[in-house]
Amino acid sequence: MTQKIKELKKKAINIRKDILIMLEQAKSGHTGGSLSEVEILLALYGYKLKYDPKKPEWDMRDRFILSKGHGCPGLYAVLADAGFFPKKELMTLRKLGSRLQGHPQLGLPGLEISSGSLGQGLSIANGIALGLRLDNKPCRVYCLIGDGEANEGQIWEAAMTAAHYNLDNLCVIMDRNRFQIDGLCCDVKDMLQMKMRWNAFGWHAIEIDGHDIEKVMNALDEAESIKKKPTIIIADTVKGKGVSFIEHNNKYHGTAPKKADLERALEELAEALKKL
């Protein structure tokens, strides 16, 4: 286990490098929210999810739904690393004719849905969870949402549906990086007590440090053990995690690093890798 954790920590740094390199050459895209979700994605694809990159449509796979579609550079990097498609394809991000669209479009191996219009992924995840249950399939459904995304009313409609149908084959992870485009979530529209909200909606809720990969892995295990209700893991993260001048800097919500910034960022990440 410790070996696995060490390996994933190293991988997190390399995934961050991939994200920054692909965003710099694309010259646009969502840097902050891609860097904040890395440990969550790795705990899923490196530990929890059942999948076969050679058979992306394998019907006994677990499903991962990226509801916060703008975080796709992070998912693309992790899917390429998991072997769903060649890593060199990452460099086609946002380019004409690419399977790596600016926001996810069905068709890229490993992607379960198209997304980008916020708030819809959780309802889709519910539908998949209901369908799998109707077929008595033991597969689980994981859905990543943002905290800003929880402004959307549809998130709460879906939260009610999941609890009403006791969807214990569903686990939501909230990448709570505390920022949305206009600024701090609490300034834009304060959602106050997030955990209490989900509890009140009938969910089992866990709060963890979303960059502590071991804690994310444990929370995913806990979610699987909870019966008769859905679970949400509220993962506290840092927007732009891993690069000093991008962390907490909301300028990087929807912009890519410039060449010089990329070089500085890669140096920092190389340093972090050495320290590991």
Partner: peptide
């Protein structure tokens, strides 16, 4: 959106 999810399971 839930209907969309159901259709994704066939």
């Amino acid at each position: 959106s839930t209907a969309a999810g159901l259709s994704l399971t066939g």
